[in-house]
Write a protein that binds this DNA or RNA. Sequence first.
DNA 1: GATGAATGAGAGTTCATTCAT
DNA 2: GATGAATGAACTCTCATTCAT
Lengths: 198, 198, 198, 198
Amino acid sequence: MAAVRGNGDKRKRILDAAVVEIARRGYYNTTVAMIARRAGVADGTIYLYFENKDAILFALFDRAMSRFIEKGRAQIPQQLGAEHKLRRIIELHLELVGEDRDLAIITQVELRHSLHFMGQLSRNQVRDYLGIIADVVAQGQAEGAFTPEAEPLLAAKAIFGVLDEMATDWILSRRNTRLESKAEAVAGLILGGIRLRA
Amino acid sequence: MAAVRGNGDKRKRILDAAVVEIARRGYYNTTVAMIARRAGVADGTIYLYFENKDAILFALFDRAMSRFIEKGRAQIPQQLGAEHKLRRIIELHLELVGEDRDLAIITQVELRHSLHFMGQLSRNQVRDYLGIIADVVAQGQAEGAFTPEAEPLLAAKAIFGVLDEMATDWILSRRNTRLESKAEAVAGLILGGIRLRA
Amino acid sequence: MAAVRGNGDKRKRILDAAVVEIARRGYYNTTVAMIARRAGVADGTIYLYFENKDAILFALFDRAMSRFIEKGRAQIPQQLGAEHKLRRIIELHLELVGEDRDLAIITQVELRHSLHFMGQLSRNQVRDYLGIIADVVAQGQAEGAFTPEAEPLLAAKAIFGVLDEMATDWILSRRNTRLESKAEAVAGLILGGIRLRA
Amino acid sequence: MAAVRGNGDKRKRILDAAVVEIARRGYYNTTVAMIARRAGVADGTIYLYFENKDAILFALFDRAMSRFIEKGRAQIPQQLGAEHKLRRIIELHLELVGEDRDLAIITQVELRHSLHFMGQLSRNQVRDYLGIIADVVAQGQAEGAFTPEAEPLLAAKAIFGVLDEMATDWILSRRNTRLESKAEAVAGLILGGIRLRA
DNA sequence: GATGAATGAGAGTTCATTCAT
DNA sequence: GATGAATGAACTCTCATTCAT
């Protein structure tokens, strides 16, 4: 009965161990043996659950991005106005990244690095995420709340860039501030820009 | 004189070779031998100019960021108004990144990765760059052109994030568009934000 | 009764699977898991029937050589003259080897390899086979049909060598000829030698 | 000056070490580290001279077969009659194989094994050798010394089979007899066959 | 008896670095 | 200064074997 848990459990334990180790040392400086030791399994066991070392990293991305998109879908009501939705996205993004520093290091630092050299597998999910933001921008333009001059996808990338930089900055500066605390100010900048309004 | 140039020449050739190889394969998948071969020197010669493999990467960052800041200083007149300065920074950033795709890959992809795992050496220069942008923001607020609500360093990070994402997106999508062509639209977003002006 | 058959059945299925896999890939490139999969049993089940991987190979040789000697005994009447017996042996050898290419590969290629490195277990049976041929040679000499100069065991080895090379050649050249078709010519050579008779 | 020797020397030392180790344990039970240790070089050095472990085995075959064919060419005068030539081939074959037991083990046991599973690379040289014997058979038929009934290539294979079996038998029986001592008797069998002459 | 997930020793191979020339 | 052959530690991955179920 509980046996079924054993399987999922072990895969999860390997991924959890991988997050910690890779966040701490980077993908290339983390050995499979390190992950195995932290997960409490034998080296060979890793290969029962993942085809090779790369596959662990991909699985990590998958899991992280899925959680991201899923939480976004669950916590942003469809019927909300675009500005509220955008504010919510900004809050959620910073919240989720801020929740698990190790995972954040991986998505901000390793993901970026690997996207380019390990194929495009994971870029698709970033694209999905950008698509969600772009939809909100388009909605805002339809509502007459957002400037019609902005190309939605370009705006989405800009927004993502701001959020991403906040996250990266938070990781690289090892201070102990809460990432979410910036949400209000960031939302102000994104919505209002930097130029003084007449 | 010629001797010194010969010397500097070899160091430069190694760095130039490193840019190409590392951009193509990533730092960890590039061997010292590959760099040596492209530079046209013996493997051992590398170690006459660099203490170890990591040192090559650091030198690469140094050179790239120095060029960046230097060009910025040279091409943005001090007496310009803040908005013009900011527009010029945006143009220059996209221009410079767009000029050398190999170098761009390294600064966008490898730099970020290394910042975290190889110590703070290079982070300082990013900080310098953010400082320059922050100064322009502060200048704009003093001039009454920019919103006084924005904390200059935070705004600088947001601006950097937008530019950085544009650059990263340009690299990851292997399309043949010119990166500079986005400058106008990006400047619009950064200055005016996304919310429709009254 | 059915239980016993079920048992023998599983052992047989494992050996049959082993023949195919080992013939295809060689002993060292065949994993126990491959054999188990083809046999339709679990990996662990193999070890209920064989002490270890080597034991499978030994059992294979045993089975093959037993069939060989057994068929020889059954199909070569004791009262036959030596020359007829020898012709029959030549035919039978080529026939049997030619019947099952997979098994032939194992006896020609793997057996030889293992004879040397896995102990003498199987060499005994080759010796038995050589003994049978040597007896026929001696019988021929007693009958006055074969040359008395030839030392029977040496002659037996020479005969075996010819047959063995024919078999090996047939396996290594992947042509689709029938091995038995060479029997007549081979018998001629063995009996008459290569020198023209006066 | 002597430096040039260093290179050829090292490659030779590796091959010599490989012969001993592989003959003793078989190819698959010999590790690269074992060969390196016996050769007195570091593990990694092996890979400066050979692409991978397989390449060592191939090089061994090449060297062995080249020596074989070369010695054959050097020591068998073209103008000899076919029977003398054939006797000389038989002597030389047994002599050469008998000279270096380790090498013999490899050619008789490992060659055979690998021919089938590692591609056909080396089979070509066996074919060359068979061709040489076949030519002698054809010469003998032209001279009217050998029976015209025998197809030369088939006869060559039969002869090779006899020689090969003698060699294999000599290796597998660990007795201390000299292999060459059988040459006379073997030649008699090959030339005269087993049937008593009228 | 049968299973197959788990083990962990051990394999081949790579590559940053050194140093005799 | 320049070379590049040599090093050997360290990596990823495989697979015969075990044992709890």
